[in-house]
Design a binder for these strands. Structure first.
Ligand code: FES
Ligand code: FES
Lengths: 155, 155
DNA sequence: CCTCATTCGGAGAATTTTATCCGAAATCCA
DNA sequence: TGGATTTCGGATAAAATTCTCCGAATGAGG
């Protein structure tokens, strides 16, 4: 039910960059402050996304991060393969070392079809799509300020 | 895509107990060795399952753990509520603090239906069902010995 | 009663994940 | 050239998860 924080930050950051005009480098500082995540930690994640060939990075003034050409067609699965490792779709839900029809745990037959749905979803959601959804204003990338979360709190 | 090890051990252990004759206490040591998990760690998990009212525990000779009456009707969701905490089905896939239609992230509309399927599955899989599946011999609770995992290894 | 076997409960070690810090290298611009 | 800004990369710290150890309490049986 859970992605690691690292994966969540990576996805959020990439969608955010995808909402910005392509070609204009975006500062790590700006992303972190918009998403409200720790800047130094996010910087590490950005580095690994560069190494995974999803981003370009530019140092110095006017530096920052840009999506690589075509990276707006990147889907979430490609990102998660970087951040969660290549085996994350192949794991047994009960933690057995091997998940296959031949070595199935008692959840296997029910779990695999759902897993397939998840994988299909991750494969079809591209940064472009997700960025557009955000741009409509109907969907958000960061938390609402706490003041808005419990508006009935006022006396 | 991932349950914590704690949850995986808890589920495995409970299914194992459910495959045993009810009323006869099962030793922690026996469970741990069958499932091939760290005994001292499993003992902690068993303790918390007792506190969560899924198990009875008996100390001393002839001690061990038994399912509580009716616990074979326990479903996986009840177990996970103990081991993962009460909010684990309500979390945003991208990590936003609140997941709701009104504060949706760009994955929300696609993710929630899948989440519902997962929840429904967890709600319908009882220890009884899962234990029976294991008893048929077609499904396993523990890993195969490594010697069997790569049978082509022999010269 | 004593002995043995077991869970209980607390402390704490090891590992992994998350987060921080800082000096060095790159780049822009004056 | 030199100053300002930014990422890079390595070390390290903090927190959470996973795992271990041990003495105490409990209960069965001799
Ligand atoms: S073996 Fe457990 S999910 Fe496939
Ligand atoms: S808000 Fe992200 S899944 Fe609901």
């Amino acid at each position: 039910m859970i992605l690691s924080r690292t994966s969540q930050y990576a996805i959020q950051a990439l969608i955010f960059i995808a909402t910005r005009p392509p070609g204009e480098p975006v500062l790590n500082r700006e992303i972190a402050s918009y998403l409200n995540v720790p800047p130094a930690y996010l910087a590490k994640i950005m580095q690994s996304l560069c190494k995974g060939n999803l981003l370009y990075s530019y140092r110095g003034r006017l530096g920052g991060f840009c999506l690589r050409e075509g990276a707006s067609k990147t889907d979430l699965m490609q990102i998660l393969l970087l951040t969660e490792g290549p085996s994350f779709t192949q794991e047994c839900v009960l933690g057995l070392k091997v998940c296959s029809d031949a070595t199935a745990c008692p959840m296997h037959t029910k779990w695999v079809p759902i897993k397939k749905k998840v994988v299909a979803l991750l494969n079809e959601q591209t940064l472009e799509k997700l960025a557009r959804a955000v741009q409509t204003g109907k969907y958000r990338l960061s938390d609402l300020p706490t003041s808005l979360l419990a508006p009935m709190r006022r006396a």
